[in-house]
Simulated assay, not measured.
Amino acid sequence: MSWKRSERLIDMTNYLLNHPRELISLTFFSERYKAAKSSISEDLTILKDIFDQQGIGKLVTIPGASGGVKYIVKINEEQVKPFVSELCQIIADPDRLLPGGYLYMADIVGNPTIMDQVGRMFASKYADKDIDAVMTVATKGITLAYGTARYLNVPVVIVRKDAKITEGSTVSINYVSGSTKRIQTMLLAKKSLKDGSNVLIVDDFMKAGGTINGMISLLNEFNASYAGIAVLVESEEVEDRLIDQYTSLVKLSNVDVREKQISVHEGNYFTNS
């Protein structure tokens, strides 16, 4: 089959988008399209400009016999600001208020379109980090973790608060909840994370950061480290926050149950370097 350039560009774009952070040799594309490597190089130059202009990401070319091209997710902040603004409006809906001042978030973390976009934003934020896995705690952070891991092309590691027989041997720790000050337990299957891994921690909601601090302690048991912390929503009204360095998309500044008002604004995503 002889591919026209327009056909190559469409198929090549689709392939790159579905294989982020994967080094793809020019030989692979050359054989795939039955085209000279010089033609493939020209195609990639075209895509590189389009990806950059449209805020899709960047194409990194690695020279040499073992080189190739790698697609890295990078988002133009001007393109996602309207998304964050709309997300703030969605979360500010007073109908989300539950008894005790809690917020109903299941529809948001269960929305694949929203989680895909948030995951893409988090992946873009940490695209230059060396990340081996995305970690979260069950259950509400799972969809967010998968949305992020998809664009980083790494596995998801799920921390649980109770043992599952299907996961085999586990490593467990006790940690102090930042909001309730109670001692709780979290555990992780021994086979789920390799020693020395560099991990991105994500979660749907952060108050004082006790749960995230617990995950950091759990990483120490695997001789692993964290490359960053990303949360969908952070609570602003916290006296003793246990976590200093993190990225948040939305900041919850006030919840008035009596007046049925929820005050939210954008987090530090756009200001945190």
Rank of each mutant, 00 (worst) to 15 (best):
S273A: 11
G57A: 05
A35W: 01
S39N: 14
K48R: 15
G119T: 07
I212N: 00
L98N: 02
L152I: 12
T247M: 09
T271C: 08
V69D: 09
G196L: 05
G55C: 07
K194S: 15
N268S: 03
N223K: 13
Y226G: 06
A123T: 09
I46N: 02
G178H: 10
T170D: 11
G178I: 10
T136S: 15
S41N: 12
S38K: 13
G57D: 04
D203S: 09
A145I: 05
W3N: 06
S30K: 08
V159Y: 01
I158S: 09
E77V: 10
K70H: 05
G214N: 06
S2D: 13
R258W: 07
G168L: 02
A230G: 13
I10R: 14
V238C: 11
F28E: 04
V109W: 13
K37H: 08
V255P: 03
M115Y: 00
A230V: 11
L242C: 05
K181L: 15
Q184S: 14
N111T: 05
K129H: 12
T185I: 09
F205K: 00
L44Y: 08
E237W: 04
K164C: 06
T13W: 05
I183F: 02
I91C: 02
E259H: 03
L59P: 05
S225Y: 06
L218E: 01
I165H: 08
V156S: 10
Y226E: 14
S2F: 12
T185K: 15
T148F: 08
H19D: 03
E78A: 11
A145G: 08
G214D: 03
G210L: 01
V250Y: 03
V231N: 01
D93E: 06
I91Y: 00
V60P: 07
T27Q: 12
I131Y: 04
R182N: 15
P155A: 05
A163L: 09
G228M: 10
L144K: 02
I158T: 12
F205W: 08
T113E: 14
R8L: 04
L242G: 03
L200Y: 15
K4S: 11
V118A: 14
V154N: 05
K34M: 01
S169G: 04
K260N: 13
S263R: 05
G168S: 03
K4Q: 11
I50S: 09
P112Y: 06
F83L: 08
G147T: 09
I62D: 04
V171K: 11
D49F: 07
G101C: 02
R21C: 10
T27M: 07
Q245T: 14
K37I: 12
T27A: 12
T170C: 10
Y175A: 07
V157A: 05
T113P: 00
L242E: 13
F270T: 06
Y269A: 07
M186N: 01
V176G: 04
I142P: 02
T271V: 14
S263H: 08
Y175K: 10
K164D: 09
L188T: 00
M215H: 00
M121F: 09
D43R: 04
Q245P: 03
Y151C: 10
R182W: 00
V60A: 12
R32G: 01
T271Y: 09
L188M: 08
P99Y: 04
V109T: 15
F205R: 02
N76E: 12
D130F: 02
Q184V: 06
N220H: 14
V238G: 06
I46D: 07
M135K: 07
S217E: 15
I108L: 13
L144W: 04
